[in-house]
Design a protein around this nucleic acid. Structure first.
Lengths: 223, 223
DNA sequence: CCCATGTCATGCGTATTTTAGTGGTCGAAG
DNA sequence: CTTCGACCACTAAAATACGCATGACATGGG
């Protein structure tokens, strides 16, 4: 999962980044509205943490901008202001949640988990597809109830696949979801991880179909 | 949209119901945990407002119960307690949001709207023409509901045809649409792909008519 | 320093795309 | 009505791009 943190306060931004980073997600930090908009133009995110008070524009504008593009990435607002009116407006604008500063990191993590879960169309902390079950918190995977070992990257890849079932995912798209902005690996690394994932999933009833020239597609097995 | 309100306090429950009802949604009110579980067994809801302190069981149990059934209906918790710990647990249990009592009705409405929007927002990106249906995300095509296999180029070509129904498309135009600027294939490749597409579409109710000297035209079949 | 993990480079096999070539069809002009 | 030329359909085979396996090379934490 790939998360954008928009926060001008360097200290707070870094603190959040660290915390989120430890959850094992790809993460970008924008310190101005402009920067944020640029990044949003280039990259699709799975979650956005948005500070309202930015030096160059209000979080409001960023949010409007985002929704205008038909994006439905979940957004959590961070705000020092606690006037209910504003919050309502933001929720109506398309924010999904908000938190008042000072931020309680534990709660922030929980809310991130809840929203990420929802945007994947699941309301549980484990995602199941076929006989494969991901535990997002423990970062473990079971196939038919048997625990299997996945490396971090493999796990994240599988997470993206299961979160986008029914969609063909190109190597580029997959890279965007499991790498940071400043990382530019060769798209062929995806081939490697797909290969490893396939090996790990060979006893499961799902498999990754390659669609030549387009990407990969997660499917249930039907022999 | 159909909403379940679980709230034992009669006054508050009615107030919420009225308010939500005015948003134009169908609504049921449960005053006990048992009642709630019963209703959840019979009816599928699009959103649940759940009071934590019920006479016969905790909201917790209802939530667990719900998630055990693989339901991913969004849930908003209503709670008088405002200890952060509890809230985190609930979010982790699969709640999507919470509000502290006393409830601000404006805010409640806004949150409901946000969650409903999100759960609806999984619109499918498909184009239909006749009995042919393109899924742009999965890059798949069905004819009369049956999945057919198309190569990448064939798919793109069909996409262009369906996106320009009622227009005669010259080979040159088609090439411009499915090739990059720097690629300059022989215009006759289009003939090949049209031939292959025709073969794939022979069981459909659309066909590609040749207009000699001008190009091709996608039409619905009428024998 | 060593091991675990992640990334990259090479070469091979195959699926897809493109070209080439042959024969067929259409339509206009004689 | 016939004939001619241009355009189109179709097959087979060549060329290419793509994906995969393997192993070598980085990197970073213990």
């Amino acid at each position: 999962m790939r998360i954008l943190v928009v926060e001008d306060d360097r200290i707070l931004g870094e603190a959040i980044s660290q915390r989120i980073g430890r959850m094992g997600h790809g993460l970008d930090l924008a310190q101005t509205g402009n920067q944020a908009n640029q990044m949003l133009g280039v990259q699709e995110y799975d979650l956005i943490l948005l500070d309202l008070n930015l030096p160059d524009m209000t979080g409001n504008q960023i949010l409007q901008n985002l929704r205008k593009k038909q994006s439905n990435t979940p957004v959590i607002i961070l705000t020092a202001r606690d006037e209910i009116k504003d919050r309502i407006e933001l929720l109506d604008l398309g924010a999904d949640d908000y938190m008042a500063k000072p931020v309680d990191f534990g709660e922030l993590e929980a809310r991130c988990r809840a929203l990420l879960r929802r945007s994947q169309g699941q309301a549980q902390n484990t995602i199941e597809y076929g006989n494969v079950c991901l535990d997002l918190q423990a970062c473990t995977v079971t196939v038919a109830g048997v625990l299997i070992e996945l490396k971090q990257r493999e796990f994240r890849l599988l997470e993206v696949f299961i979160g986008h079932t029914g969609r063909v995912l190109s190597k580029e798209t997959l890279i965007e979801h499991i790498y940071n902005f400043n990382e530019n690996p060769n798209p062929s690394v995806i081939e490697i991880y797909v290969a490893r994932l396939r090996k790990s999933l060979q006893d499961s009833d799902i498999h990754i179909r390659t669609i030549r020239g387009l990407g990969y597609l997660l499917e249930k097995h039907h022999d």
